[in-house]
């Protein structure tokens, strides 16, 4: 068919226009599928995540960097839960598989998480962890759910959890899975983190001020991976990058001491 002569303006778009159109498309894709996000409050980190934070109603997998970093990874998970609980009403559920410790109440308070808002369930096995998480997500009554699994998160439970979490449109919960450092399995997680201890921030007298973690974003759907040295402020429920005046200089992209 011959093109009509009434449309002489049919010309290729200029590079600027194309970039603008691509930006719009990219922004649309970057927005998480459901619900809102939990921003870290660290600009450098949030720009790399789609929508500017951890997507709520999406599955996030967190693992320790190496043997011995388990407590740090648990601390990172609970700090995320504490940050979400500080911003949203409701309680959180922590389902614990054998092999993971039950956190210490006073330590939770020290991380800024009120133990009265944390429900705990000791599961017999990973299957029970996934079952309990799925039931809880389907009940849709908690602000955050986190599972501590012993053998990693396989593909099928990951998909089921993702479906259960995404089935609630209005206020999807924060969904976190903490797995051991070895069991890296393919699954449908939106982000995958590896956490190592970062040495505490200290005041000028040498006293511990805040915990620090070396957080590496291994994989991020619609985002860019990266790594950071993150500091956790338990009173303000806020993550921070250590400032240059701290005793330990930040080496945000440096190597790992683990």
């Amino acid at each position: 068919m011959k093109p009509s002569r009434d449309e002489p303006e049919e010309r290729p778009p200029s590079p600027a226009e194309r970039i603008a159109a691509l930006r719009v498309r990219l922004d649309a894709e970057r927005r998480p599928d459901v619900g809102g996000v939990l921003p870290f409050g660290v600009a450098d980190l949030d720009v790399r995540l789609p929508g500017g934070g951890l997507g709520l109603g999406l599955l996030h997998e967190i693992a320790p960097e190496g043997a011995g970093d388990e407590a740090s990874a648990l601390g990172f998970v609970l700090a995320l839960v504490a940050r979400h609980l500080a911003r949203a009403a409701g309680d959180a559920l922590l389902v614990v598989a054998p092999g993971h410790p039950i956190p210490y109440g006073h330590g939770l308070v020290g991380l800024g998480l009120d133990p009265g808002r944390l429900l705990l369930l000791e599961a017999e096995a990973d299957a029970a962890v996934f079952g309990a998480l799925e039931d809880t997500l389907r009940a849709g009554q908690l602000a955050a759910v986190a599972g501590l699994v012993a053998d990693g998160l396989p593909l099928k439970p990951g998909r089921r959890l993702q479906l259960a979490a995404g089935s609630f449109g209005t206020a999807p919960p924060l969904l976190l899975i903490l797995r051991p450092f070895r069991a890296a399995l393919p699954n449908g997680a939106a982000t995958r983190w590896r956490i190592a201890a970062g040495g505490a921030a200290r005041d000028r007298f040498g006293c511990t001020l805040r915990p620090r973690w070396r957080a590496r974003l291994d994989r991020c759907r619609n985002g860019r991976p990266g790594d950071w040295l993150l500091e956790w402020d338990h009173a303000a429920h806020r993550f921070d990058l250590p400032d240059g005046l701290a005793r330990r200089a930040p080496d945000a992209c440096g190597g790992y001491a683990g």
């Binding site: 956190p103 210490y104 109440g105 133990p115 944390l118 429900l119 705990l120 599961a123 908690l142």
Partner: peptide, 20 residues
């Protein structure tokens, strides 16, 4: 949440706990 806690308990045989 009480309903949820009861359901989890019946399903998995372990009570939902908290730290006090």
């Amino acid at each position: 949440i009480a309903g949820l806690a009861d359901a989890l308990r019946q399903r998995f045989g372990r009570p939902v706990i908290r730290l006090s």
